[in-house]
């Protein structure tokens, strides 16, 4: 017997205990839960917490990756490694209809691409498997409309979120009642911040995609964002020439929609120190947030995470 849990009063301990409680509540009360796994750092932390919550049992739910087919190659690599763990079941879903229509962020822009490949794809997968609760790694500190979302976020049978009709959520008493067809999106990391996530990754030595660490990578600069040329699907504009720059990513989405930042941070420690001195918020690298005023709120109402 090694440790005492008597000093468990740090912010990370409290956050961890709360997240574990949320994960267990869903498994105890919902019929077909699933964990949305997007391969990023928040998903990595959420998966780690889930392993802890149900130890020594294997994960009592599958993971679901809604694949837009435009993720960075390094992300697919980590995903496939995670899927090799015999305790993990991973479903990969691609919106085949979107794929057949050739939807891409390059030709259709970020809004259409996200709507079709991500939001529609997610709904298809949830309906197809009949999942009634889906864990997501969203945090309230990411964006203003998320700051108001419940931990157990109720969705209608059409997957819509109604910000004006959210159920009151008191203490840690979560109302998991719903009619057939209705579902929940559940956010175990609601009260975590970006800094908490990195501190936890550091403290628990959780593996993350190497793209979070600075390295020399080929990028082009487009309307102020550094876009990585991850494969030959990114058409170069006239006169555009990929340059090798020392960059890393604070957030990872589809590669043509995710801007890199110049950085020297090659370790988790470096990232935390960089963040303590940082002057831009995390979601700035996500082009889809800037599609219009209050655009995240709009997307969420339509069923986006």
């Amino acid at each position: 017997m090694t440790d005492l849990l008597d000093a468990r009063s740090t912010h990370l301990d409290r956050l961890e205990a709360e997240s574990i409680q949320i994960l267990r509540e869903v498994v105890a009360e919902c019929e077909r839960p699933v964990m949305l796994y997007s391969i990023g750092k928040d998903s990595a932390v959420m998966l780690h917490l889930a392993r802890k919550a149900f130890y020594p049992a294997p994960l009592p739910f599958p993971l679901l990756h809604v694949d837009t087919t435009w993720k960075f190659r390094d992300m697919y690599k980590l995903r496939d490694e995670v899927a090799r763990d015999p305790a993990v079941r991973l479903h990969v879903h691609v919106n085949q209809d979107g794929l057949a229509r050739g939807i891409s962020p390059i030709t259709h822009g970020s809004q259409v691409h996200t709507d079709v490949m991500k939001t529609e794809g997610l709904k298809q997968a949830l309906d197809q498997f009949g999942f009634d609760a889906a864990f997501g790694g969203a945090r309230r500190d990411e964006e203003k409309s998320r700051a108001k979302e419940r931990v157990f976020s109720f969705r209608s049978a059409a997957h819509r979120w109604d910000p004006k009709r959210q159920r009151p959520e008191l203490w840690s008493l979560y109302n998991t009642r719903k009619a057939p067809g209705e579902s929940f999106r559940v956010f175990p990391l609601s009260n975590w911040t970006e800094l908490d996530v990195w501190q936890y990754i550091h403290a628990q030595r959780i593996p993350v995609v190497p793209l979070y660490f600075a390295d020399w990578r080929p990028v082009v600069e487009r309307s102020g964002s550094l876009i990585m040329v991850d494969d030959d699907r990114l058409p170069l504009l006239p006169g555009e020439q990929p340059q090798l720059r020392r960059v890393r990513f604070r957030t990872l989405g589809c590669y043509p929609l995710t801007g890199a930042i110049e950085s020297e941070a090659t370790t988790v420690e470096d990232i935390i120190l960089e963040m303590l001195a940082a002057r831009t918020s995390e979601r700035q690298g996500r082009l889809i947030d800037h599609d219009g005023a209050a655009s995240m709120e709009q997307k969420k109402q339509e069923g986006y995470f």
Partner: peptide
């Protein structure tokens, strides 16, 4: 036993999520 994924522990108190 008090079971956690990081090994058994000899004491746990209010606020901890344990098995």
């Amino acid at each position: 036993r008090i079971v956690t994924a990081d090994g058994d522990v000899s004491l746990a108190d209010a606020g901890c999520s344990v098995t």
